[in-house]
């Protein structure tokens, strides 16, 4: 028994150390930086208290817009990827012909780099030569200047990111659907549950853990959204698509507002914790129940 404990500690220790340094120590470091006056290129460790946070919340117009954009982005992105993902997973699971082909088709966007798909979407949205513009012309719809409009730029980015990440939620749901024992479904059918009722009362509750996982991952992704925004609009036009993570990068690396960038990072981290902490507790509970 003692030997086994020693072995397991030996096996776990390396990853504990690596995670400890590269995750937790760096979070602590970032938090420490966010409390300083390090808004210069060279480190300045003089203590500033909550000055950077207060500036962001009370004076910084850009940060206010970033939070608003992020809170508009989040529900559309999370619900969009989850509903579409569940729908596609259900179709794939229904014994459709060429299932593996379609599975690849839907999962492929996830394998494309966000930078590459960002470039492709910029072309799709181009109001004079883009694919969408041609489609709108055929349908006799008015041309929309997607990325150049204060109104449409954020929805355009939401659509692009939903396209990118739906494959991810599809795979999560597909795994969940495959995990439902056939006997349960057959029993439900014998009891007269069909179609919508079958899904509402049996299937959806049974993929609850997939739902929770997808939800947490998608919320966390949307709070940290950077790549595709950076490639498609760099936060423009006039902050219409700016996100906290974009501002964090610019503040920290371009403007040398290192402490302000760290403060933004900590705010993103805190917002993420709001969804992750309940997840850790529910995930624990679900596993216990299943056990």
């Amino acid at each position: 028994m003692k030997k086994r404990t020693a072995l397991s500690i030996g096996l776990i220790l390396p990853s504990v150390i690596i995670v400890g340094i590269f995750v937790y120590a760096f979070i602590a470091w970032t938090f420490a930086v966010s409390l300083t006056n390090w808004n210069t290129l060279l480190p300045n460790w003089s203590f500033a208290g909550l000055k950077n946070y207060i500036y962001l919340f009370t004076q910084d117009m850009r940060f206010h817009m970033d939070l608003i954009n992020n809170f508009i982005f989040l529900p559309f992105f999370v619900l969009g990827t989850m509903i579409l993902g569940f729908f596609l997973a259900t179709l794939l699971n229904s014994g459709v012909k060429f299932e593996s082909f379609f599975r690849t088709v839907f999962l492929l966007p996830m394998a494309i780099s966000l930078v590459v798909s960002g470039v492709i979407w910029v072309w799709i949205y181009d109001p004079t030569n883009g694919a969408l513009a041609s489609l709108f012309q055929i349908l006799h719809l008015p041309a929309i200047n997607w990325l150049g409009s204060m109104t449409y730029a954020l929805p355009a980015i939401i659509i692009a990111t939903i396209w990118q990440y739906t494959g991810f939620t599809t795979s999560i749901y597909l795994a969940g659907l495959r995990g439902i024992p056939q006997e349960v479904l057959e029993a439900a059918r014998l009891d007269g549950a069909h179609g919508f009722r079958l899904y509402w009362n049996i299937v959806i509750p049974m993929v609850q853990s997939s739902t929770v996982t997808a939800f947490v991952l998608m919320v966390q992704l949307s709070l940290q959204m950077f790549d595709i925004v950076w490639v498609m609009t760099q936060g423009g036009p006039a902050f219409a698509t700016d996100m906290p993570a974009v501002y964090m990068f610019i503040a920290g690396f371009k403007q040398n507002f290192v402490a302000r960038g760290a403060a933004i990072a900590m705010i993103i981290f805190a917002l993420t914790l709001i969804v992750v902490i309940p997840y850790i507790f529910t995930a624990g509970r679900i596993t216990e129940e299943e056990a």
Binding site: Y125, D126, G130, N145, W146, G148, T233, P237
Partner: peptide
């Protein structure tokens, strides 16, 4: 300016 300036 051209209407599609933001895409270019």
């Amino acid at each position: 300016v051209n209407p599609n300036h933001a895409s270019l």
